[in-house]
Write a protein that binds this DNA or RNA. Structure first.
Lengths: 223, 223
DNA sequence: GTCTATAAATGGATAGAC
DNA sequence: GTCTATCCATTTATAGAC
């Protein structure tokens, strides 16, 4: 993934490391990673392009060269972030399992993804405080991400055929329920900690909540 | 609520309205209301003190006179916002009802409060992206807000005695579950709209989700 | 494609009159 | 307590050399 770092770097390998000529794709990737951390940490307005530059081995003009504006950079960050989530959803293989088992698996994977990617959760929260302005402008993020709904619809139908789920459940409402339960405990853990004095990331609570959420979803669907 | 607007205003009622001498409490209240709208709309860094001033009938120096800094003003906004939520929770009167009915009522009130106060939801989201830094510094917001947990604990015990709820449910986990379901559909409605093309605020969906959430909680507790 | 240096604008905060 | 006017640090963005 990082194996073509310097195409023409040998040309000036001495000279006190004054100028590093590198691959455009690599530079873009490095900038996006740095920007992702910065935006997740401080929000769009709070993030400083100077600080993003400081997190990379390039400089501010390089950022503007590649991304034109702070806003375009932010949009690029959002796109790659959603791509990561999408990949996980597409790699779910639930075909062999009974419907209830498959549903449990899906909820667990969703739970774990949120728990393991607080950065992604923050970015989505931040984008919501901006009313999803940048997501709306971005090219058809919708279609590609809505695939989960199809998966859920299939599972619900299978569950009804197997007589383990009741009928009449809307797959989008169900997805909202699962997302809510997985997202909120990560997104709001700080105010939660301040008010209730409980660290939602402490291993014992993570385990308990994972069980609770799976149980809640399955009980909701049970015929 | 606004009936003591001008203590000494009569003293200069002419003169082309150049200076309005007003009650300090009133001015503070007006500034906080304006700041709340501004912070909720643009976040802490995105909010402009100039724009807050523009939303009031006072000016920027008045804001600094009363609140010393943008950050202290933001903290004051947070405190009044949480006070509103606290009031609703304390005015729940669930004493006469059977446990399951009382629980249904509590969930419905929570749902409605979130749905009717998207501003409050935004402020809490924003404060989370700041890792609850300001809430942590604020005077004992914790103790006063944790009262819901006691209410839930009482309801759970009553439900077990009435043999309608199973035992072993942690009241804090339950509160997290209810909050998640009520909060997320408001906080994340924008990315949801962008990705899935569904307006979570449309009346038909609001109703369906209200039913779903109550049902999910009661099914989770059912003995 | 990448750097140093700097322009241009914004925005938090205050001086000082009333 | 409230206003007009302004200071000054910060920050987005770019010019121009290599």
């Amino acid at each position: 993934m990082d194996d073509r770092v310097a195409k023409g770097a040998a040309a000036k390998a001495n000279a006190g490391e004054t100028r590093r000529v590198r691959d455009a794709e690599t530079t873009r990737g490095e900038i996006i990673a740095a920007a992702r951390a910065e935006f997740a940490a401080k929000g769009f307005s709070g993030a400083r392009v100077d600080d993003i530059a400081a997190r990379t081995r390039t400089t501010k003009p390089a950022i503007y060269y590649h991304f034109h504006s702070k806003e375009e950079l932010y949009t690029a960050v959002l796109e790659t972030a959603y791509a990561g989530m999408r990949e996980v959803e597409q790699n779910l293989n639930l075909d062999g399992l009974p419907a209830a088992e498959a549903m449990r698996r899906l909820v667990e994977v969703s739970f774990d993804y949120h728990a393991d990617h607080p950065d992604w959760v923050r970015l989505v929260s931040i984008e919501n405080t901006h009313e999803a302005r940048h997501l709306a402008g971005s090219a058809s993020i919708g279609e590609r991400n809505a695939a989960v709904i199809g998966v859920l619809r299939g599972l619900l139908e299978r569950g009804v055929r197997e007589e383990v789920f009741r009928s009449g459940i809307d797959p989008m409402d169900l997805h909202l329920m699962i997302s809510s339960l997985c997202f909120h405990r990560v997104s709001n853990r700080h105010t939660w900690g301040a008010i209730f004095g409980r660290d939602l990331q402490a291993p014992e609570h993570v385990g308990a909540q994972r069980v609770m959420i799976v149980e809640a979803v399955l009980r909701y669907l049970r015929a």
